[in-house]
Computed example of a mutant assay.
Amino acid sequence: MEEKTNEKQQILRQDLSEKEDRPGGIFLVHLLMEEACALPSREKMMETMTRHLGALDCVNYDDKSAACFSPREYLMESEDGKSFSPILFVSACEKIEKPILNELELTQLWDCPDGKEILASCPYQIIASDMMAAGLDYKQRAKMLVHYMQALAELFPTAMAFVFETSKKMLTTEEIASCEQDWERCFLRYAVNIRFFKIRGTDDCMVDSVGMSILFLPDVQYHYHGLKVEAVVKHAYDVLIYMFDQDCPFENGDSVAGLREGQYDDAVPWKVYYEEALIQPVRQVVDIDTGEYAAGEREE
């Protein structure tokens, strides 16, 4: 069994030496620009950020390097009992020095079909991130980040696309600005990438997600055959919504409604297990056992 498991991981994982993802790290996004641009004025940034995020303080502003803002609504408490807010950082426009996406990541731009062309046409970027935000309640952080992204889309309308560092998902700036879902769903739309892989030399497929770790939540993973990819992707998205809404209440061996002829059916329970991801990045996932459609072998 150990030999077979190792063989399966060698087939699926692209880089077994990669270090494990650190949950709750800095949220970072690349705004891709065709031409270099200046930061908007301090007043313009304050006005736009306030409209999207509520009252905030400008911690730093230098139009040649960076601007930093602290939204007052999003409070945490330090070990000595003092309250503080996270910092939202926006860099000045700079030349892209190294590729933002690797070969594997370039195959997963399902939400931005012109992604490769956009990357080729954009030699500049603005980097935006949050700092000291890991201590926020995960829903508060997601809400803050959604409004932050919408403010950035308004401040930098000439950005061609946003690339989210944790998930490597790419969306056009227009899609960021025009998302009409509530902020919970907008977070999943913006920051979580659902990927699809065909396993070479087999009939097996993989659908997984990347991006939930920023909120200290696991991703999902399906290793299967004989199901339509669209149905599995929708199932994955719905499981992610449930996990986000309920703070991932699953225990090993719990079940979710599976699929019968493409429709949810409680009479077809699919069990869930916490496992290590089969495809990089290294991270914890909720693995969905698709029953008769499951591929590979599970260690008991």
Rank of each mutant, 00 (worst) to 15 (best):
residue 154 E to S: 09
residue 161 A to C: 01
residue 128 A to R: 08
residue 171 L to C: 01
residue 142 A to N: 03
residue 118 I to E: 00
residue 181 Q to E: 15
residue 136 L to R: 01
residue 159 A to V: 03
residue 153 A to T: 06
residue 122 C to N: 12
residue 170 M to N: 02
residue 186 C to W: 01
residue 156 F to A: 07
residue 166 T to N: 08
residue 121 S to A: 15
residue 173 T to V: 11
residue 176 I to H: 02
residue 158 T to E: 10
residue 149 M to F: 14
residue 153 A to H: 08
residue 117 E to S: 01
residue 129 S to H: 11
residue 161 A to E: 00
residue 142 A to E: 13
residue 140 Q to C: 10
residue 181 Q to L: 13
residue 179 C to Y: 07
residue 169 K to Q: 11
residue 167 S to C: 05
residue 163 V to K: 00
residue 167 S to Q: 03
residue 188 L to S: 00
residue 184 E to R: 09
residue 171 L to Q: 01
residue 185 R to E: 11
residue 130 D to V: 11
residue 189 R to T: 14
residue 138 Y to E: 05
residue 148 Y to A: 06
residue 146 V to A: 07
residue 166 T to S: 05
residue 150 Q to P: 08
residue 185 R to Q: 11
residue 122 C to W: 02
residue 154 E to Q: 15
residue 156 F to W: 07
residue 149 M to S: 13
residue 182 D to C: 10
residue 144 M to I: 09
residue 189 R to E: 09
residue 185 R to D: 13
residue 132 M to N: 12
residue 137 D to V: 05
residue 150 Q to A: 12
residue 133 A to D: 11
residue 183 W to N: 06
residue 159 A to R: 00
residue 128 A to V: 15
residue 163 V to E: 02
residue 169 K to H: 04
residue 169 K to I: 06
residue 144 M to C: 13
residue 180 E to S: 14
residue 143 K to W: 12
residue 164 F to A: 02
residue 134 A to G: 08
residue 131 M to C: 12
residue 156 F to S: 04
